[in-house]
Design a protein around this nucleic acid. Structure first.
Length: 514
RNA sequence: GCCAGAGUAGCUCAGUGGUAGAGCAGAGGACUCAUAAGCCUUUGGUCGCCGGUUCAAUCCCGGCCUCUGGCACCA
């Protein structure tokens, strides 16, 4: 089996999970599930980034140890995964020994190779904020904002990683591998960024200022800079699992593309003589009312509330259906309800329910054997073939929103097919030809539903299982083998009814426009 | 300022050198298996602005306007 290793960014444990975190997990999970269905040997990693100044500071403010603080927030992130039905194979914390060991090894190796040197850094330091400041932090008149307290210029000795020497190599690599970053315009952005000369990367923090980190193996007076530590998680988690690295895709948000994932990470790997991952998949942000969501403005939407109200599948469906991977998207409850009602409740959910009802009522609760397909059946089957052949490449190219759109078009066509056959009329006739057509139509709608649902399996795994279950059907081990139109449902005993996506409110019609 | 993305029906978006499409919302209709769901029909647009190339541009070129994001080492 072809290995397929996929990661999310690891979340920084300095704040609670929000919609953006949830989206990234779901997107990565959909890709992971899809690749498993396609027969790949998938390894899906997610985790948390636990070191650094902010964690140390937050812990201190709470009067607990950094580890205790990290334990607490990490548990919160970890608890989100089962709620979203995330199928990760592993969960890494950067405070785990397996990770720290690899970080030390890589640092030592780079040091031995002469890629790391010591030098003085000079800059303006805010004692109150415990951080160095940049010119951009200044007020327009050149003074420092009040929040920084007293700012002094200090000189500090630190260790630096020779990034600059690899700049041309990176430009060449990206030029030759134009699909390294998806979507492609992000890759152009990185090349644009690389037109400016790189500076070497400071990878150490003196221990007097920061204790919460991995000590440098060659100088115990320093801990490792948090990005250098964090990025290595992708490799440290699988370093002892042959065959996985470098079959990796990193799913990240656009905010951490440049410079960490597009510059530091490739250069770190290359300098350490490790192969580069297959690629970076860069997603956009969820906005609310056109504004970036943030806790400070109080518009951060808690995904857990929506999951509690509508279920994980509906949440997963919405974020994957609504967002074109790579672009930004707006998230509103209204928009969520529109998709939920029209696509999940009315189109798909109702198709499930009416199929069960009609099979129970006109087919004695078992899916009949279909007769020879007439024009209506042939058209629907032809549409299925087209839909399947379009959806698979779309999913392989991360175009899940389009894949769902096509699949929903097929569900709509199935509803239209039912109207065309009108089994409720056929059920009133005792003519043998009508009875034959009735059996065919019941079998056809069930088969069509089974197939449509198979295409939604990765996005809504629980709903897909549920629908197969009420159809009295258990899919085989090979997903690809499920995608053929045939008579495998004949004889399956169906449930009487199922309201899979209940409407949240009694059909409140929006006021008409003038 | 530089770079990138985007400006198309009320909303969200697709699209092609030959006088524009989908879904949702709105309107009308026939039906009743179903979560007043589904199905059929239908009303909406001088495709951001100004020039140019062309027999012909929403799609190509130039300029402009507006929106969004990035422009680092955040120690």
């Amino acid at each position: 089996m072809k290995p397929f290793y996929i990661t999310t960014a690891i979340d920084y444990v300095n704040g609670s999970p929000h919609l953006g975190h949830a989206y990234e997990k779901v997107l990565t999970d959909v890709i992971a599930r899809f690749r498993r269905q396609m027969g790949d040997r998938v390894h899906f990693l997610t985790g948390v980034d636990e070191h650094g100044q902010k964690v140390q500071k937050s812990a201190k403010a709470r009067g607990i140890t950094p580890q205790a603080y990290a334990d607490e927030v990490s548990a919160e992130f970890r608890a989100l995964l089962p709620k979203l039905n995330i199928s990760n194979n592993d969960f890494i914390r950067t405070t785990e020994e397996r990770h720290k060991k690899v970080v030390r090894q890589v640092l030592q190796q780079l040091h031995d190779q002469g890629e790391i040197y010591q030098a003085e850094y000079q800059g303006f330091y805010s004692g109150r904020q415990e951080q160095f400041l940049q010119d951009k932090d200044r007020n327009p008149d050149g003074s420092w904002p009040e929040i920084y307290g007293e700012v002094t210029e200090i000189t500090e000795t630190n260790y630096f990683f020779k990034l600059r020497g690899y700049q041309q190599w990176l430009v060449d690599f990206l030029t030759q591998n134009e699909n390294f970053i998806f979507p492609r315009f992000r890759q152009k952005q990185v090349l644009e960024f690389l037109k400016e000369p790189l500076n070497d990367l400071c990878i150490s923090r003196p221990r007097e200022r920061l204790e919460w980190g991995i000590p440098l193996p060659f100088d115990a007076g320093y801990v490792t800079y948090v990005w250098f530590d964090a990025l290595l998680n992708y490799y440290s988690a699988v370093a002892d699992q042959p065959g996985l690295w470098p079959a990796a895709w990193h799913v990240i948000g656009k905010d951490i593309l440049v410079p960490p994932h597009a510059v530091y990470w490739p250069i770190m790997l290359h300098a350490a003589k490790l192969p580069l991952p297959h690629g970076l998949l860069v997603h956009g942000w969820w906005l609310q009312g056109g504004a970036k969501m943030s806790k400070s403005t109080g518009n951060a939407l808690n995904p857990l509330d929506l999951i509690a109200e509508f279920g994980a599948d509906a949440f997963r469906y919405f974020v994957i259906r609504e967002m074109n991977v790579g672009q930004d998207s707006d998230f509103t409850r209204e928009q969520f309800l529109v998709r939920y009602n029209s696509e999940l409740a009315n189109n798909l959910g109702n198709l499930v329910n009416r199929t069960l009802n009609m099979t129970t009522r006109f087919g004695a609760g078992a899916i009949p054997v279909a007769g020879a397909p007439a024009e209506a059946e042939q058209e629907l089957q032809a549409l299925w073939t087209r839909t399947r052949d379009e959806v698979l490449p779309l999913c392989e190219g991360f175009q899940f929103h389009s894949a769902i759109e096509r699949t929903m078009g097929f569900i709509t066509a199935t509803n239209a097919y039912i109207e065309r056959r009108a089994p409720w009329k056929l059920g009133k006739s005792s003519e043998p030809a009508d009875q034959e057509l009735l059996r065919t139509s019941l079998a056809t709608m069930a088969e069509s539903l089974r197939l449509g649902v198979a295409l939604l399996q990765a996005v809504m795994p629980a709903a897909a299982d549920r629908i197969n279950s009420v159809l009295g059907y258990r899919p085989g081990p090979s997903w690809m083998n499920e995608l053929t139109w045939d008579g495998r449902l004949a004889g399956c005993k169906v449930a009487e009814a199922l309201v899979l996506f209940p409407r949240p409110q009694p059909a409140a019609k929006a006021p008409a426009k003038p």
